[in-house]
Design a protein around this nucleic acid. Structure first.
Lengths: 343, 343
DNA sequence: AAATCTTACTAAAACGATTTATTAAAATAT
DNA sequence: ATATTTTAATAAATCGTTTTAGTAAGATTT
C-alpha cells in the first residue's frame, strides 16, 4: 500500500478540519471558494490519493467487479476482456478476472472468492459444465448484481449479452449452401448452455429453409471439457464422417476450439480443404487468414459483447430501481475465405 | 458489496467481545478452546467472510497486485497472465490487469491508477515506447515493490524474469544455419528494451560462430507501435529484401507479431515458404502447426515467466529485508516445423 | 433591534477488522 | 497465606474516509 498523504495530513497542514478537506475535494456547497482553492492546490502538490480501502469501507463498496471466464488465454475471451477492461478503466472501477477452466466446481470457488473479496457486481460467462444456476440465483437474491455474457442460460433472470448464435449458425450454413455444398456436417459441444442449442437450431433452420434434409449421422456432439479426450473423440468422429457412404462435403463447427482442432486434424489426415471437404466455424482468431487454407469464419463482436455487458452491470449496480432485464444479441459477421470456396 | 455477517454480529450473538471473535478466528493462544469452537461453528454456519476493505485499511495493504502489460488480447501475454493469475489465486491475492497498448503515456496512467488503487506490488512488462524508468524508480523509492517481467531493462534495479532472448535468437539462427541457410535476414523491433538488443545479439553471435558475415542490408528494425504503419513498412521492407542481388534465403523475425505479419505478407506476395525463403520467429501461438506452412518457432515459457515473476514479487512484498535482486532468464524451446525445412 | 436564515466551517460517529493495553480470575510458587 | 504467574477475556484505539449533527458569525428579514 502507498504510504501517501491522508486527508488528516492536509487538514493539519492547512489548519482546518478533515471533514472540510473531504468536502472541499468533492466540491461541496458547504465550503467557501478560497478554502476549496487552498485544499485543491495542496492536494495536487502533494499528490493526495484517497485511500481506496477507507473509502470502500465507508461507502460499503469496493469499486471492483468480478469477472469469471473459462480461460484467459483464449483469444476470443481475451478480446471480450479487453472490452470489459476498457469500459471499467474509464469508469474508475477495477476488474478481478478469474478462470473456471470449464469446471463447475472451480467456477463456484471463483465466485466464492470474488464475493468474499467484496465485489460490487459479477460478470460471468458460465463454464460448459454449468447446468445448475441456483448458486448464482442465491447470490442475486442476496443483493449481488449479476450480468451473464457470451454464454447465456435461462437458469437465471438478469441482463444478458451475447452474440446472436442462432443467426450466426444460420449465416454459416446458408453460406455453405449458397456455395454449392449439400451434405453439411455439424460438430458441436454437448454443453447445456443456450449457445450450443442456438447454434444447432440455426444450422437446422438453414437446412430446412433450403429444402435440405437433416441427417443425424452428420451431427456430432462432444464433451469439450477435457481437451485430450476431445482430440481423440474428434479424430474418431472425423474418420467416421469421412467413411460414410454419403459423406459430408462440408463441416460447420460450432465453437472456436472445435474449428481449429478440426482444421488441424483434417490436415493431418491429408484431406484437402475445401476440395475433399469445406470447413467453416465460429472462430475469432485474427490468424484465420494465415491458416492453411485461409479459414472462413463466423466472427463474434467480442469487444462489443464485453463492453456492453460491463455497461449493463454498472447500470444495475447504480440504479436500485429494478428496470426490466434485457437480453442483447449482437450480430455476427461472416468472413469468406478459401476453406469454403464455391464448388 | 456483500451485506454479510460481521465480527460484531458474531460477538453479539455469542455474548462475547468482537476482539475475542477476531482472535478466535485466527486461532490465537489467548482464547480458550471451547470459545474457539463456538466461534468457529457460528462463523461457518452463518458464512462469515472478513470484510476485505476493513482488513485492508487496518493492515495497510490491499492484497491486490497491479499487472501492466501491452495488451491482454495477445496470446503470449494471456499465457503469462494465466501463470500470474494461478499463483495469486492460490495465495489469496487479487490481480488488477491494465493495458499500456505500447504507449508510454498510457503506461504511466495505468500505473498511477494502480498506485492510487492501493496495490501492494507491481508486476510490469514495459511498453515498447518506454525508455524512461525514472517514474518506476520513484515509485520504488516510495516503497512500492516492483518486479519486471518478459521485457527487461537496466533502467531499474529489481527482480526481473524473462525468457533468455539471446539464447533463443541464437537457437533460431543456428537452426537455420544447420538446415543449410546462409543468407539470413533479421527483422526486429526498434524498441530500446533489452529484449530487442538481446535477440539481435543472439542472431549476430550465431552468424559469427558459423563464420558467416553480418550484412547490414539484411537487417531491419521497425517501429512496432503503430500496427497499420508497421504493416506498410514491413511490406516495403520484404519487397526490398527480396529484390536484393544477394537476397536472403531465410528470415528470422524477433517478435510474435512480426513473425505472423511476415508470414501473411510473404504469402500475399506469393513467395513459397521455405522454397523461396525460410521463416522462423519468436511466437507462442498454438496455431503455429495449423498455419501454412506449419511455422517453426522459438517458444517462450510464458506461463512459467508469469508464475515466477509473481512469486518473486510476493517475496519482495513479504520480506522487508532486502535480499540482492535477481534476474531469471528462462530457456526457450525450438519448434521445428515445415517453414524451415532442410535446404 | 430582535428573530430568522445563510454561509462556512467543525466535532464526532461510523464503516469492520486488528491490536495494544488492561483486567479479573484461576493456577502456581514461595 | 501471600506473592507471582498464567489464562482468558475485554475495552478502546486505530486505519482513512464520509457524513450527520452541530455551531458560531454574518447577512437578511420583520
Amino acid at each position: 500500500m502507498n504510504n501517501s498523504v491522508t486527508l488528516r495530513d492536509i487538514a493539519k497542514a492547512l489548519n482546518i478540519s478533515a471533514s472540510t478537506v473531504s468536502r472541499a475535494l468533492t466540491d461541496s456547497y458547504q465550503i467557501g471558494p478560497e478554502t476549496k482553492k487552498k485544499v485543491l492546490a495542496y492536494a495536487k502538490l502533494h499528490h493526495y490519493i484517497p485511500n481506496r480501502m477507507a473509502r470502500g469501507l465507508k461507502e460499503g463498496r469496493s469499486r471492483s467487479i468480478g469477472v469469471v471466464v473459462c480461460a484467459i488465454d483464449n483469444s476470443f475471451v481475451a478480446q471480450m476482456l479487453n472490452g470489459i477492461d476498457k469500459f471499467y478503466t474509464e469508469q474508475g472501477y477495477q476488474i478481478i478476472i478469474m478462470q473456471s477452466k470449464e469446471l463447475y466446481e472451480q467456477e463456484k470457488a471463483c465466485i466464492d472468492l470474488l464475493y468474499a473479496g467484496g465485489i460490487d457486481g459479477l460478470l460471468i460467462s458460465p463454464s460448459y459444465q454449468t447446468t445448475d444456476f441456483s448458486y448464482l440465483n442465491e447470490l442475486q437474491s442476496a443483493g449481488l448484481p449479476i450480468v451473464l455474457f457470451d454464454r447465456l442460460s435461462d437458469g437465471i433472470n438478469t441482463h444478458k449479452v451475447a452474440a446472436d448464435h442462432l443467426k450466426g449458425a444460420y449465416q454459416a450454413t446458408q453460406h455453405l449452401i449458397n456455395n454449392g455444398y449439400k451434405a453439411i456436417a455439424h460438430i458441436n459441444s454437448n454443453t447445456q448452455l443456450n449457445m450450443a442449442t442456438a447454434r444447432f437450431e440455426g444450422y437446422k433452420k438453414a437446412l430446412t429453409n433450403a429444402g435440405l434434409p437433416i441427417k443425424n449421422d452428420l451431427i456430432k456432439f462432444f464433451d469439450t471439457t477435457n481437451l485430450t479426450v476431445l482430440n481423440k473423440n474428434l479424430e474418431l468422429a472425423i474418420h467416421e464422417l469421412m467413411s460414410l457412404k454419403e459423406k459430408p462435403d462440408a463441416i460447420f463447427t460450432a465453437t472456436d476450439s472445435l474449428t481449429i482442432r478440426c482444421l488441424i486434424l483434417l490436415k493431418q489426415m491429408k484431406y484437402s480443404i475445401p476440395k475433399d471437404v469445406a470447413l467453416i466455424g465460429f472462430s475469432n482468431t485474427d490468424l484465420a487468414q494465415a491458416l492453411s487454407p485461409p479459414l472462413s469464419t463466423i466472427n463474434q463482436p467480442a469487444f462489443e459483447i464485453g463492453r456492453l455487458a460491463a455497461e449493463k452491470l454498472l447500470l444495475l449496480i447504480n440504479s436500485k430501481n429494478s428496470e426490466p432485464f434485457e437480453t442483447l444479441l449482437l450480430a455476427t459477421e461472416l468472413q469468406e475465405r478459401d476453406s469454403t470456396l464455391m464448388r
